[in-house]
Nucleic acid binder design. Sequence first.
DNA 1: TAACCTACGGAACAAAATATTCCGTTCTAG
DNA 2: CTAGAACGGAATATTTTGTTCCGTAGGTTA
Lengths: 213, 213
Amino acid sequence: METTTPAPMSGRKAQAARNDQTILQAARAVFVADPGAPIAAVAERAGVGISALYRRYASKEILLRKLCSDGLKIYIAEAEAALADERDPWSVFADFMRRIVDADTHSLTLNLAGTFAPDEDLFRESEYAESLAVRVFERARDAGVLRPGLEVSDLSMVFEQLAAVHLVDEERTVEMRHRYLELILDGLHLTSAEPLPGPPPTPEEIGRRWIVT
Amino acid sequence: METTTPAPMSGRKAQAARNDQTILQAARAVFVADPGAPIAAVAERAGVGISALYRRYASKEILLRKLCSDGLKIYIAEAEAALADERDPWSVFADFMRRIVDADTHSLTLNLAGTFAPDEDLFRESEYAESLAVRVFERARDAGVLRPGLEVSDLSMVFEQLAAVHLVDEERTVEMRHRYLELILDGLHLTSAEPLPGPPPTPEEIGRRWIVT
DNA sequence: TAACCTACGGAACAAAATATTCCGTTCTAG
DNA sequence: CTAGAACGGAATATTTTGTTCCGTAGGTTA
């Protein structure tokens, strides 16, 4: 459970605890790259056998839910941090965006939408996360630092667009996302600009994609 | 082959000619929604039997190449139109972007990258398309209407990002893409703004994704 | 009209992929 | 020294899917 201390490097239990981490990281990397990847690919990437996976997660679906849930937890944490941030509204908002893009929470929610049945808990977490996002957004909007006509739902779409930025090298991918996030932030910040064309996506439009087919 | 005239509505040949169209449209729609979709899904969507597909395309891979090739042809046509456009540089550039986004040529090149072996011809077409894009881009840049530090390769990434905008309803998807394209265009047009952070993607980084694994 | 041929629908087939189970092995704690 | 946790990875059962095949209908030609 401790990621900080290398812990008594030896010992079966330490090994296992380290695997907990390794497996989750591997799963994340693999499923972000290819949402339909076989579970064997995760094991290989983690450098462990398949049974090491099944010992921890009874099924692929459960593993996917875990990954999603973790992503949401990060999102929630960042949103709460933003709400507690006392600096000027635009900096707070922009940094929130940057952190979410860095955390890459949307590569999962985007790619995995519809590939597994959303848990009841997941649903609640998701709703809570959304409610926080609303508050973060409204703080910026009420402070008058956002382009007129924007809605919270625009944020989701922006995150999804940035999650689509994918190069082979992971580090470069992160760099590129920052590059285009700055571009988009400039557009979002243009308080004197024209409102964007077309109505923003409705929450319903955004949520419908989670329906399992 | 003629899409304009409904042609002698009846007649086996007319029927077949119409199927040529229907099948391509269906294939496009299906594979854009799900790059790994089975060929049977295309047949179903087109409302024809499987053999109607195999009569025209000897394999799935050939069909995919055809779709990609068609997309590139559109891209090329739009780029050539832009180069022939005499209006002010920014309008020409912005309209080029809008048309490409509308044509949705990148949903295919993006989603299908790596799922089939690029043909020799496809390769040539692709290179020609890219060379045109360079000229369109440089005309705008040389006219001084672009934010400093931008490169042609940034266009590819922008198109890919916009191709990631996907709602259930197709019409709304188009609307949304326009919405965020305007946002991005504003960012691209900010000639006095800071250059974007990080080096732009290299052609090599963008091309590497086509390697079949 | 009759033979013929093209385009087609869709079942049947074979191959590939993949989630999950199972069993023998290794390593550690006590 | 031994019981058992943790593991590696082959084997299994199932599903998915590309492709082939065959019987039929509609149109065409002689």
